[in-house]
Design a protein around this nucleic acid. Structure first.
Length: 207
DNA sequence: GTATCGATGATCT
DNA sequence: GATCATCGATACC
């Protein structure tokens, strides 16, 4: 694994994420974002699930170098990288890392602010599926390709709050390479992650 | 409950 | 032509 690391830079409740936060390594940022509230035009909530990617990672869009799609990942930290997934969905990354080519995919958040708006955009009032998944989250927050390359410390984005410590790690979702790298992070026990981890429910052999 | 598959289009080989 | 950092519907257990 990655061994010891310094504590992620965190923001006090109601305060902006500090400058320099996104210049830390991608794993530190991915972990540090759990619990940070992400708002887009005032709509969103605390981040519940993230994944880290960097340029040395075969699962990363930046692995094969710069292209028309991934230009934002090769820009400075603290900007959005938004791409279309499977021709249908949008996915939001936050460009970050100590090296060029890093980003954190925002996979899920707890819907708190603007729930009615999110429900209308998603076509459901089921809180569990409003923002649980990168495509769902972008639909709920109104994120599309026009958000690519925009700075995260300015409107319509707002990032604030405090990162949490009850974080679990595991393999990333939907990739074919880099599966062994445990760079998916989520808030332990959160029902809003894209794939809830059902622990200790052994229906097979109940004593 | 889990498993599989089609949609849909840009990107990559 | 193949591959996707996905989702939702459907089939099956």
């Amino acid at each position: 694994m990655k061994g010891n690391r310094t504590e992620p830079a965190i923001a006090p409740p109601g305060h902006d994420v500090p400058a320099g936060f996104f210049s830390q390594d991608v794993v530190t940022v991915a972990r540090g974002l759990i619990g940070i509230t992400l708002l887009v035009n005032g709509v969103g909530g605390p981040i519940a699930e993230t994944e880290a990617y960097d340029a040395a990672d075969p699962a990363s869009h930046s692995y094969r170098g710069r292209s028309a799609r991934n230009g934002s990942v090769f820009g400075p930290p603290g900007y959005a990288y938004v791409y279309r997934s499977y021709g249908i969905h949008w996915c939001l990354n936050l460009v970050c890392g100590a090296e060029v080519g890093g980003a954190v995919l925002i996979r899920a958040l707890q819907p708190i602010n603007g729930v009615d708006v999110m429900a209308e955009r998603r076509g459901t009032t089921d809180l569990r599926v409003l923002c649980s998944g990168p495509g769902r989250l972008c639909q709920a927050l109104g994120i599309d390709g026009t958000f690519d390359g925009r700075p995260l410390d300015q409107s319509p984005f707002n990032l604030a709050g405090i990162s949490l410590t009850s974080i679990q790690a595991g393999p990333r979702i939907g990739i074919t390479r880099g599966k062994e790298t445990l760079w998916r992070f989520w808030l332990a026990g959160s029902p809003f992650v894209s794939r809830p981890v059902r622990a200790s429910r052994k229906a097979k052999t109940p004593r």
